[in-house]
Amino acid sequence: MTHRIVVLGAGYAGLAATVVLAARSRRRADVSVTLVNATDRFTERLRLHQVAAGEQLADLRLPELLAGTGVALEYGWVTGLDPAARTVRLDDERELGYDTLVYALGGVADTTGVPGADEHAYALGGRHEAELLAHRLGHGGSVAVCGSGLTGIEAAAELAEQHPGTTVTLLGRTEPGEALGARARGYLQGALRRLGVGVRTGVEIVKVLPDAVALAGGETVPADVVLWTSGVRGAPLAAVAGLAVDAAGRIVTDTALRSISHPDVYAIGDAAAIEQGYGMLHGSCQSGMPTGVHAARSILATLTGATPPRFRFGYYHTTISLGRGDAVVQFTRPDGAPRRLSLTGRAAVRYKETVSAAPWPTYRRMIRLPGTGSIWPRGGRYTR
């Protein structure tokens, strides 16, 4: 009997799980690995703000990466999941059976809490959405970026730099870079000013209109284009299938990253609610790839009768691009609190490009190393 492992989603976490499973099971005839993705292209989600600004990214293709690994590739949108029958349904009505499922479908922009956000705002949920925004920005006009978190900061800076004649306003409850140390926060806010980004903090967005953003208190901020970056939630697929999810629709996991309601389903990346000693893990490439590695190791350990290790993750840095020639890197404690050390300017750009912006070479190394032990430690605290 062949144990069928199916991975849903080829994002940072899903692809990390796939390449580790492929590397460590390539000599096992009793294990098969199938990767399901909407297309054959790998989307660098960390760079979608660049796509939205009209820039061209590298064309990274899954068949090229996975050639010779034995991984079966299936293309299509996942439309249904039946945990009782252990089947996955795709948009062309195909059904795939599994013995172990890795759920790595990521998250979607949370536009549910503000009227008009879903109808009138763009989001950076994928390459196609980012390209639609780029096309719209080619016609000019003012832009309101809703959400002053990391995605909102990077998007506002990129749009202002690439479209210097466009008025860009960043709207949010908190000041940009609030979680950074004083030096890095000051540099970031100065960079936004140099780029001409208008910043409004302490505001509550109550409605998105076709040509404006309405704030609590009756004020409106005119905008020809609205970009929504305020929050991410899990896609409804998991909840509809009956898996235990949290308030944000993410699959609740145990310490091995298994669903607490369906232990033959592993959840990783943005799709998972993963509790750590310091709180809930937040979605990022920094944490997503280690969850994929750990899930793969947990699955293979279980197949041999071993007890999978507990997942522990500590943050190492926060990296923020401020256009193509500027950035901020804040080094952090494992719980994400800022350390004294930070990088700014070109040094930060070089660091960010090296460690976090392009994981493709890392996937290649993981495939070549059967144990993948030199990438992340066994059973200890993961950092990236």
Rank of each mutant, 00 (worst) to 15 (best):
I251V: 15
E204L: 12
Q286N: 10
Y315I: 01
P222I: 04
S261Q: 03
T220E: 04
V208K: 07
P308V: 14
I274P: 04
H282N: 14
R258P: 11
V240F: 10
P210H: 02
G279D: 06
G269M: 09
R250F: 14
Y315C: 07
G242V: 00
A216Y: 07
P309V: 14
A306F: 08
R194C: 06
I251W: 14
S230W: 03
S284I: 04
F313I: 04
S230Y: 00
E219K: 04
V293H: 15
I274D: 03
G269P: 10
A271E: 07
G196I: 01
A306R: 15
A239P: 09
L237K: 03
A273F: 08
T201N: 08
Y315R: 00
G217C: 00
K207T: 12
L257C: 12
G305K: 05
L257K: 08
G198A: 15
V226Y: 12
S287G: 07
P222R: 01
I299M: 10
G198T: 12
V265I: 14
A295P: 10
V197M: 03
V252R: 14
E219T: 08
A306N: 12
A267Y: 06
V197H: 15
K207L: 11
T255Q: 15
I268M: 06
T302R: 15
W228C: 01
V226W: 12
T302M: 15
L257G: 02
F313A: 02
S298R: 05
T255N: 13
I299K: 09
I260M: 03
S261L: 05
Y316K: 11
V232N: 02
G218A: 04
T220K: 02
P236R: 08
G269C: 05
V226P: 08
K207I: 00
E219P: 01
G217Q: 06
G279T: 00
R194T: 05
D211S: 09
G277W: 08
M289I: 10
T304V: 15
E275F: 10
W228T: 00
I251K: 08
D270T: 11
V232I: 14
A238H: 13
P290V: 03
P263V: 13
R250I: 08
V197S: 03
A301K: 11
V293A: 13
R233F: 06
T319R: 10
H317V: 15
A235C: 07
G202F: 13
S298F: 13
A267E: 05
S259L: 05
R297N: 11
G283R: 07
A248P: 03
A256P: 02
A306M: 11
L188I: 00
A191Q: 06
T302L: 15
Y315G: 03
L195S: 02
A223I: 01
L215R: 10
E275T: 14
K207Y: 09
L215T: 00
I268Y: 02
L257A: 09
T318I: 15
G234F: 14
L303S: 01
A256D: 01
R258G: 08
R310P: 11
R250D: 05
A247M: 03
G279S: 03
A271F: 00
A296Y: 05
V199Y: 11
D224Y: 06
A239T: 12
L209A: 09
V265T: 06
L243C: 09
S259N: 04
A256S: 09
L209Q: 08
A191E: 07
V203Y: 02
V252N: 09
A239C: 07
D246G: 10
I268D: 07
P236Y: 04
T318D: 09
V221C: 04
G249C: 06
V293P: 01
R258T: 06
T253P: 13
